[in-house]
Write a protein that binds this DNA or RNA. Structure first.
Length: 696
DNA sequence: ATAGGGTTAG
């Protein structure tokens, strides 16, 4: 794996790693005191001059006009226009062309056209500027009419037409013009390459790029900035390396922007190490856009802890997150259940007046849902103005995983009425809702409607929901029949695992063996098949078979995935493994755990040592049960939070039934709401009860 | 002296 170390960034953390919990795989992850950057108000980018133009003499108007760094409002452009008119009977053609440009770049095409028509003498630039105006605003009909009536064209005229077609999605037309044009320059090549990229034709874009190299066209920085996203999209490290080498060979200066594009490309080609090296060497590290691809890359590779670490480092360096950062980092926060950081990100958008559109809204809804804060998800959902199908899907899925099946179905119906195009993911969400809430009949109805009414052919995840649904309801034969006789796709490990999990709930050895054999055949290295089957045997009293299963696993050299629990406190995510003693406050934690044990026992709690398979005595079995990572995490949560605050835990594997009983009692005795997200679902413990109704 | 091509998310 890749080593991401903040040392590479030459960051000197101002805060000591006093309460850092470092896991085995991740050398530098969470440091204490998650710091909020100091708010600055200079955010909104200025696209137009804020103050009205003061033009004292015509000469000054000209320098305003020709200053390419400025953008003007329509009124200001008209003001400049009137000054130019005052200059005399035949104003310089340069000035008029620039005025046409001023009108055209902001889409004031009628004004631009009027000026163009009034000109007594026009040159190729006048024509091209207006053509470009039409092309930039999608009016390719007007652009083409004007382009066709041009008596004289140069390479720029052709390029603006190619660009126009490319931007409006007509790559065929763009390509035709490119082939027809009498001479091409590097901009022509760049334009066509980007046209392909924008429209998703990365392979074609790369072919174009290669043609350019073959034809000895010298690529420039823009060529590389255009082709790199295509290579990224293809995820082809080989071609990525080729492009990178060419950058070296052409001697082009790798500035911040080009470096960001390279980082992004390497991330998307799964070369995180290379990406990080480039990222660390980026000359523009004060720029957010250089951090965003690296963050997104880590998240994409499921390195959530490293992503959060980098996010923190970024803030220590006073680089302000932007909209793109939010979208990139929220899935990492969601995955780790770090709701404190999530809330901070949410409030940051409000403080910085970053508009929560449907995309950002979906990410926030997803994050809050995965942190078990469904009320906050609903709040965000309600606030977003133009709701997209993605947002609706995220909300339905959120209700589903939080066990609010009826609400999810209600929202799904609202979505149907809201005239949105229901897609396969909408059905996946609502089916998931049915399966989590045990709504068997509803689920089967939705499944049928999806196929028959909406004509959406089920994907593997839809089948997964139905198998889960049937299985959890105890209809194991029906579930098996669906898998064996009625699925149009080859069942994957998730399907078999669903069935096996159901067999565990309902204690069915026979179908369990059937599912386990398929599971082991498909993925012999997955420990969970052996572990699940072993516990099914154990529960059925077939102790010898249970031991045999464990033996099989051990002999194949398969290790059980170590269980861990995450709990966030004060902006830091703490990670606990089974019997973990490496936390700096370990002693306090174990003392707390003892205390909790006695309190619970005094009201009748009996540790369920039946779950411990090995032949050890009762005292040791009890200890083994107490060592489960979620118990350590909850003990830590109790001593490290204010009284009455809800505790959120994320676990990588499913909870055992003893931990489940334990949490119920803790929630009651300590008067705390406990939210635990395991591999499959949420458990909201309150006053001695769990939202899953002991059905999981 | 005026006109054209480009990075980060999903």
């Amino acid at each position: 794996m890749v080593l991401i170390s903040s040392n590479l960034l030459n960051v000197r953390h101002p805060i000591a790693y006093s309460s850092v919990r470092v896991s085995n795989e991740c050398p530098t992850i969470f440091s204490s005191n998650f710091q909020l950057p100091t708010a600055k108000n200079n955010v909104s980018p200025i696209t137009h001059s804020a103050t009205p133009l003061v033009v004292e003499e015509p000469h000054q108007a000209i320098s305003f006009l020709l200053d390419r760094s400025k953008r003007y409002t329509l009124e200001e452009s008209k003001q400049l226009h009137s000054y130019i008119v005052k200059l005399g009977s035949s104003p310089n053609i340069y000035f008029i062309n620039t005025l046409i440009h001023l009108y055209a770049v902001d889409g004031h095409l009628v004004d631009a056209r009027k000026l163009f028509d009034k000109m007594s003498h026009r040159d190729v630039v006048s024509w091209t500027t207006l053509v470009d105006g039409y092309a930039k605003f999608g009016k390719m009909g007007d652009a083409k009419d004007l382009f066709d009536s041009m008596l004289e064209r140069n390479v720029v005229s052709w390029n603006v037409m190619i660009s126009g077609y490319g931007k409006c999605g007509d790559v065929e037309a763009a390509r035709q013009l490119f082939d027809q044009m009498p001479e091409r320059d590097i901009v022509s090549w760049n334009t066509l390459i980007s046209s392909y990229v924008w429209n998703g034709f990365s392979e074609e874009a790369f072919e174009m790029f290669r043609d350019a190299i073959i034809e000895n066209v010298l690529p420039n920085k823009v060529t590389f900035l255009s082709i790199l996203p295509a290579v990224a999209d293809l995820g082809c490290a080989f071609r990525g390396g080729y492009v990178h080498t060419l950058i070296f060979k052409t001697g082009i200066d790798v500035d911040g922007v080009l470096c960001s594009a390279l980082v992004d490309m390497y991330c998307k080609c799964d070369c995180l190490e290379m990406a990080f090296q480039l990222f660390a060497s980026n000359p523009a590290r004060r720029n957010v856009a250089s951090w965003n691809p690296m963050l997104a890359g880590l998240v994409r590779c499921n390195s959530f802890e490293k992503a959060l670490d980098l996010f923190r480092t970024m803030q220590l360096q006073n680089v302000e997150p932007d909209y793109v950062t939010m979208i990139a980092i929220l899935p990492a926060i969601a995955n780790l259940g770090a709701v404190g950081i999530g809330k901070w990100v949410h409030s940051y958008t409000q403080r910085k007046k970053i508009r929560v559109n449907a995309t950002l809204g979906s990410a926030l809804v997803d994050m809050y849902s995965k942190c078990g804060c469904i009320e906050l998800s609903l709040q965000v959902f309600t606030m977003v103005e133009h709701k997209t199908i993605e947002l609706w899907n995220a909300m339905v899925a959120g209700l589903a995983i939080n066990g609010q099946g009826k609400d999810a179905i209600e929202l799904f119906y609202q979505m149907c009425v809201a005239n949105l195009e229901i897609d396969d993911r909408s059905f996946a969400a609502v089916l998931n809702a049915c399966s989590h809430s045990g709504l068997v009949d509803d689920g089967l109805e939705f499944f049928a409607a999806m196929k028959d009414v909406y004509k959406i052919s089920p994907k593997i995840q839809h089948y997964g929901c139905i198998v889960d649904l049937l299985g959890r309801a105890g209809k194991l034969e029906e579930a098996k029949d669906l898998i064996c006789n009625n699925m149009l796709i080859k069942p994957d490990t998730v399907i078999w695992k669903s069935l096996l999990g159901a067999c565990k709930i309902h204690g069915n050895v026979k179908i369990g063996e059937f599912a386990a054999s398929h599971l082991i055949e498909l993925d012999p290295s997955d420990s969970s098949s052996y572990v699940l089957m072993s516990s099914i045997y154990d529960a059925a009293g077939q102790l010898n078979d249970a031991i045999m299963m464990r033996k099989m696993m051990n002999e194949a050299g398969i290790r059980k995935e170590p269980g861990f629990s995450l709990i966030e406190s004060g902006g830091v995510v703490h990670k606990f493994f089974v019997a973990d003693k490496s936390h700096p406050r370990s002693e306090e934690i174990y003392t707390m755990l003892d205390e909790m044990g006695s309190k619970l026992k005094s009201i009748g709690y009996v540790p369920n040592t039946k779950l411990v398979l090995f032949d050890i005595d009762e005292v040791e079995k009890e200890a083994a049960i107490y060592n489960h990572s979620e118990k350590l995490a909850i003990a830590f949560g109790l001593i490290d939070s204010v009284n009455g605050a809800p505790l959120h835990i994320v676990k990588n594997i499913r909870m055992c039934s003893d931990c489940h009983d334990f949490m119920k009692l803790v929630s009651d005795i300590y008067n705390r709401e406990i939210v635990i997200r395991d591999q499959r679902r949420f458990h909201h413990f309150r006053s001695g009860k769990c939202s899953c109704m002991d059905y999981w």
